[in-house]
Every structure is written in structure tokens, then in C-alpha cells.
Design a binder for these strands. Structure first.
Length: 594
RNA sequence: GGGGGUGUAGCUCAGUUGGUUAGAGCGAUCGCCUGUCACGCGAUAGGUCGAGGGUUCGAGUCCCUUCACUCCCGCCA
């Protein structure tokens, strides 16, 4: 017999009537009627109403008890009369008549209520996270997270993957995010880095012949936070497979994600087979490489229209001549929308730092015409050409933006979201997955004008290794892919480059000589020289998956002990100063930036 | 590093054009109440209006500086 309880707070029902039981939990709520006191006792499992009246000698003590005090009660299960049954809770048909009780943990006046649906500032929630985590919604989110991870783990084993741990203290690498660094006491002046991902290790596991690996892996990146990005650490389902091509990875991941999302959410998956969109198509049609495919709006390029003589939209024509492009978004049947709808979009676009969005609506009496502030600039032939390019119809409106490619992508991508929101075009009850494929191997750094890896330097370039054209590195595509769901990037992965000579060649394009590669990627490059299998993998973000399943917009709602935006843990007071002794032992001295 | 939002009681918020002693709900304390489940009723305590400076006869309110939290851009192979 357990010392503290005979049952959990969700266990008792009518069948238990008359039993002498003991329950332990938190005082969720009191309702004091003077001579009769109701106490809702809560534990992880549920709530049970407990009752005591004035005749009992414990009454006055319980009447004064603070909410959230942890108590054990002993008493008898009574069935409730029909009019007092509470159908909201599982134990609503019974209550426990308290005979005696014991305080197991006292509670001071609360800095924030636990039993309340109100929203609280992040600051107070994070400082008192242990109280926050008692609250229903987030408590359930964290349990969901546990169940999702457990499910994924068992699915991975079923799919033939083995789970391995990889080092947390490893070496800093020059590519990618900023590292978290840890000074080495035994090696003065040298530092470990926390892994940004177990990238090199998982490839080494393949070279070691383990065939299929996975890990629910902590990843550490010292970069600024976002709503969907924790500062510091996050978790990935890191996986890697030998002797595979891109399609083999896709098959496994689709299977896993579909079963996970179907099990843990009521929302429908829009397609069972994830559509594949090339990186360049994504940027053209959605302005981003993480498109929300729930949104039916598509961006079209109509730059050519502004080279025509029968178009007199001089501002855009001038910009086009100097290298800008024009892209547009067509909204279906918006002819009757008030002027304010259109002007608000234009105003909003200006607030986003763009030059705004021009618009017109297609009309037809005898001939096609365009209504709106810029409608007069287009001849009917030009309008017909636009209709051909955009598949727009009479009654539709067209929003236009003109700018240099990168800025144009940014604003049209935002506009696509904004307009869809205004028109309520996004179905909140679906998951829309897609693969983004054919990422470029290299890109040009805008500031330095140097060529650098656009994603993972270990990715395999597309095409036969001996036929690759290294003269035009910016045209090279990689077997590199992302999964996107509802506009959130869930993971990225690649088929890896397991051929050392090809690796050196690619690194040389990005400005690394052989010695640098040998020094900075020693573990990896050395291993590839001793019989490496072709391999590839991916790493879906666990936090983001749970976020989608829990229908939360912020990653901290599915993270037990998150840091705030400035990467501080307000509860544990991290990061914190360290003693002179500690610094000395590590051969460190502090010198602050001005 | 840059831009937006927020900051008033323990918590969530209101506070008009600058004008008397800064309010409400929840929580706390005290009292009343035997069927509630957001129990009800009454009373009391609780404020450096984020901080500093300025304008003004007078600042929670206007201006400047600064701090904290948050959202976004940069960044995140």
C-alpha cells in the first residue's frame, strides 16, 4: 500500500462508492460555504472533488489552506445526487468525504494563479515555470511531446534504425551557425563546441557500417530566437541511412510523418504523398523556400508586360529597365471588395518597408478593362496578356510589386500571407506538407561577393560526379532537401558527398584549400578515405513537429524549460557569472567589448 | 546590429483633451453563508504608474534618454 495515495485523482467513479480511499495532490480550488467546504484536488491525472463539513475537527484548518498546497486526504467515496453531478470531469459522479488530512507541501501566496485560463506574461511564466507547467494546456502539451517522442522512437526501431548517442562536447566547425563554446581545463586555450547537429558523427556512423541510425538529438546553436526557434538548444530526429538515394529517404520520412501526424492530430493531411517543389520554383511561386501550401494564392512573374509600348506604367517600366522585376498575386472574385481593402494592403506593404503594392481589378463590358488607380496604364492587349500569364478572370484583382529579385521575393511572400489572411483563405484544419528540392550547392555572399556553400557543405552535387561542370558553381544543384509543413520548415537533409576528391574540389570553390579542409573537417574527410558508403539523411525538428500537433504558434509552449529571447533561463538564473577560481583554472580572463 | 508592440496593485487589465485622494476583476487578509464546481455576499490591506531627466501652475497621460519582455528583419550550412 502506497503511503500517500490509494488512487489517482481521475480514478474513482460510482463503482467505488463506499470505499475508504486516500488521495494526494494539489489544492486546485476551494469553494467555502461556511459550514461546508468543497476542495478540488488535482494531480497529473485529473481532479476529484473532496468535501468536508463543520462537524469535522479538520474543517477550520482546511478552510484556511492556500491554493496549490500539496495535501493527502483520507476519506470515503460518496456518490453524488443526480443534480450535483459534474459532467465536466471524469470523477464528477462521486466525491470524497474528507475524514482526515495531512499537509505534504506548503505553498506561499502565488505569484501567478495556476487554475485560470488567463494569459500571463512570459517573464512571470518562465520565472515560475514549475507553476506554469501545472496549468492544463501546457501540462498537456508537454505530455503530448513525451508521447510523440515515444511513438517516433518505436516507429524508428520498427523501420530498422538503431539509436546511438553522439558526443555533446565536440569540435567547433567553421561553417554554419555560431557555436556555443566550452573551455578545456586540460588543454589551455582550447575549446570544445556543443554540436549544432550531430552532422559529422552521423556520417561517421555510416562509415562505421551501422547502415541506419537515428537519435532524438539535442542541437545547440548560438543564434537569435524567433517564435519557432528556441535560443540555445532544440531537438531533432536525426537520422542517416547508407546505400540510399533521395527517394529512399523521402519514402521513410513520409511514412513516419504521416503516421505521427495522423496519430496525434485530428487535422487532415492535404496529400498523402508530399508534393515536390524545386527551390527555384518555390521562390518564384511563393517568394520563400518555406511556403504555406494551405494558402491557395500563387505569385506570378509579369516583368515582360512592362517592356511593352502599350503599357504606360512609367515607374515600373523605369525600374524594370534598371533590372527590377514585377510579380503579382491574383485574388479571385474580389471586384466587390471595398476600396479600403485594397488601400490597406498597399498601406501595409509600405509599412513592411516596400514601396507598396499597386492593384487593379479586371472588368469587362465590351472590352476587357482594368479598374483601380493604376488600371489606366494598361491597354486591353496588355491586359489579355496578363490574363494569359496569370490565369486571372474577370472580377479578379491583381496586386503588383516591382523590385530587385530578393526584395521582391520578400514582399510578395509576405503579401501572399497577408492577403490570404484578409480574405480568410487559409484552412486551419489541414496540414499541407511539401518537399523543397534541388537546392543550389553554392550562393554568392551579398556583402563579400564570394561564393559560399548555400547549405550543407557535405551535400552531394547533382549529376554524375565525373561530369559536373565546376566552371559555373552557382548553377550547381545539390541533393539537398527540406520538408515544409504549413509554412514551417520542419527539417532539412541531403544525400552526402562521400567522395573525398569531389569534396576537396567543392571546398576549393568555397575558398578552402586542402589543408584547411583536412584541419577543420578532419574527422569527416579522413573517414571518407577508408571506404565510405553512399549515404544520406535528414533531421526533422521535434519541437516544431510537436508545435504543429499541439496547434501552438510558439515553440516555448511545447518546451518544458525554455530560455527567453535573450537566451536567459529566468528560473535557474542562467547564464551566470563564475568565480575567479573557475576562470583561473580554465586559463581565462574577461575583457569586455566597449 | 536594426524596426514594431508592451510595461499602472501579487496576477490580468481600465485610466477620456495634461487637472480633486490612480480604479476594476482575480488573488490575499477578516467576517457571513450546508450543495458548490469560475459558489455567493460584505469589509480591509495592497501602487516609486519600469527607471532617469525634461516641458508645465500641474504629468500615469506630452518630449528625450534608458531598461525589461515580446514579435519581426539580419542571423539560423
Amino acid at each position: 500500500m502506497n503511503k500517500y495515495r490509494s488512487h489517482n485523482c481521475d480514478e474513482l467513479d460510482k463503482k467505488d462508492t463506499g470505499k475508504i480511499v486516500s488521495l494526494a495532490g494539489w489544492v486546485n480550488k476551494k469553494r467555502d460555504h461556511g459550514n461546508l467546504l468543497f476542495i478540488d484536488l488535482r494531480d497529473n491525472y485529473g481532479i476529484t472533488q473532496c468535501i468536508i463539513n463543520k462537524e469535522n475537527s479538520n474543517f477550520s484548518q482546511l478552510e484556511k489552506i492556500q491554493l496549490e498546497t500539496v495535501i493527502k486526504i483520507n476519506g470515503k467515496v460518496l456518490s453524488r445526487s443526480s443534480e450535483t453531478i459534474n459532467y465536466e470531469i471524469k470523477t464528477g459522479e462521486i466525491e470524497v468525504s474528507i475524514e482526515s488530512f495531512e499537509i505534504l507541501g506548503t505553498c506561499k501566496e502565488l505569484p501567478m494563479p495556476v487554475f485560470s485560463d488567463q494569459e500571463y506574461s512570459e517573464e512571470i511564466r518562465l520565472k515560475y515555470r514549475f507553476l506554469d507547467l501545472r496549468r492544463k494546456k501546457i501540462h498537456e502539451n508537454i505530455i503530448l511531446r513525451s508521447n510523440v517522442i515515444s511513438f517516433i522512437r518505436s516507429e524508428m526501431y520498427k523501420l530498422g534504425f538503431l539509436e546511438f548517442q553522439t558526443p555533446i562536447l565536440t569540435s567547433s566547425s567553421p561553417e554554419g551557425a555560431r557555436d556555443f563554446l566550452v573551455p578545456s581545463r586540460l588543454n589551455p586555450g582550447k575549446f570544445y563546441a556543443l554540436p549544432q547537429a550531430p552532422q559529422q558523427f552521423k556520417q561517421l556512423i555510416m562509415v562505421s557500417g551501422f547502415d541506419k541510425y537515428f537519435q532524438i538529438a539535442p542541437c545547440f546553436r548560438d543564434e537569435d530566437a524567433r517564435a519557432d526557434r528556441s535560443p540555445g538548444e532544440f531537438y531533432q530526429l536525426d537520422l542517416e541511412m547508407s546505400f540510399v538515394e533521395q527517394e529512399d529517404v523521402f519514402k521513410i520520412v513520409e511514412k513516419l510523418l504521416i503516421s505521427t501526424f495522423e496519430k496525434f492530430s485530428k487535422k487532415k493531411l492535404i496529400t498523402k504523398k508530399f508534393p515536390k517543389i524545386s527551390y527555384s520554383d518555390a521562390l518564384l511561386s511563393y517568394g520563400t523556400d518555406k511556403p504555406d501550401l494551405r494558402n491557395p494564392l500563387v505569385i506570378k512573374d509579369i516583368t515582360d508586360i512592362f517592356l511593352r509600348d502599350d503599357v504606360s506604367f512609367e515607374i515600373f517600366k523605369k525600374l524594370v529597365k534598371s533590372g527590377s522585376e514585377v510579380r503579382c498575386i491574383v485574388t479571385k472574385d474580389t471586384k466587390d471588395k471595398p476600396r479600403s481593402f485594397f488601400d490597406n494592403i498597399d498601406k501595409w506593404a509600405k509599412e513592411q518597408g516596400s514601396s507598396g503594392m499597386a492593384y487593379f481589378t479586371l472588368e469587362k463590358e465590351k472590352d476587357i478593362s482594368a479598374k483601380g488607380p493604376v488600371g489606366k496604364f494598361f491597354s486591353k492587349e496588355a491586359l489579355n496578356e496578363i490574363i494569359k500569364k496569370t490565369k486571372a478572370e474577370v472580377g479578379d484583382s491583381i496586386f503588383l510589386a516591382c523590385n530587385k529579385r530578393k526584395e521582391l521575393e520578400r514582399i510578395t511572400s509576405l503579401a501572399r500571407e497577408k492577403i490570404a489572411k484578409e480574405l480568410d483563405l487559409i484552412d486551419q484544419n489541414i496540414f499541407a506538407f511539401c518537399w523543397i528540392v534541388d537546392y543550389p550547392m553554392f550562393e554568392k555572399d551579398e556583402d563579400t561577393k564570394k561564393i559560399r556553400f548555400s547549405h550543407n557543405p557535405f551535400s552531394m552535387p547533382q549529376g554524375e560526379p565525373d561530369k559536373i561542370n565546376f566552371e559555373k558553381p552557382l548553377d550547381m544543384l545539390a541533393y539537398q532537401y527540406d520538408i515544409v509543413c504549413n509554412g514551417i520548415e520542419l527539417s532539412s537533409g541531403a544525400i552526402r558527398n562521400h567522395i573525398p576528391s569531389l569534396m576537396y574540389k567543392l571546398f576549393s570553390i568555397a575558398g578552402y584549400d586542402k589543408k584547411q579542409v583536412d584541419d577543420q573537417f578532419r574527422g569527416m574527410i579522413n573517414a571518407l578515405n577508408y571506404g565510405a558508403p553512399p549515404h544520406g539523411g535528414i533531421a526533422p525538428g521535434i519541437d516544431r513537429i510537436v508545435m504543429l500537433l499541439a496547434n501552438e504558434k510558439n515553440i516555448r509552449e511545447v518546451t518544458m524549460f525554455p530560455m527567453n529571447q535573450n537566451a536567459q533561463d529566468l528560473m535557474m538564473n542562467a547564464p551566470s557569472k563564475i568565480s575567479e577560481e573557475q576562470l583561473k583554472e580554465l586559463n581565462l580572463s574577461l575583457k569586455f567589448k566597449k
